[in-house]
Amino acid sequence: MPDAPTDASEGSVRVRLAHVARRAALCDAGVVDLAGGPLRSTAQGGRAVEGVVVAAQGDGCHELTVHLIARPVALAELGRRVRAGVLAGVEAAGLMGELGAVHVTVAGLLADEQLPKPAA
């Protein structure tokens, strides 16, 4: 499934939140990528934001879960850092009123030597 549009101002609140969270998480040096798959993405109209699940919390806000593939770093600190980054990104996007709990899950680990080498 292709990624959602890169413009975070497009789509529903869920997709916009997911997009902001994805971008914020990938900014952290300890994050290699986000874990994809149908159960770990937020979809709308046949397009999906991989690695972030945004679900209605029932009180008008949205619960957000980020699924990381991390480098071998201190995972507790990484999780807290990513969450802080997501919160800052959501605030900058003016979506703070829509956001509920933010969960971070480290789904996998990838050491530097396991990363694909860039093409010469």
Binding site: P72, L75, A76, R83, A101, V102, H103, V104, T105, A107
Partner: peptide, 17 residues
């Protein structure tokens, strides 16, 4: 309210590393 979680596979990998 929030959670910070690590899947067992990732935890095994970081411990071995």
């Amino acid at each position: 309210d929030a959670t910070l979680g690590v899947r067992p596979r990732a935890l095994r990998a970081i411990a071995a590393h």
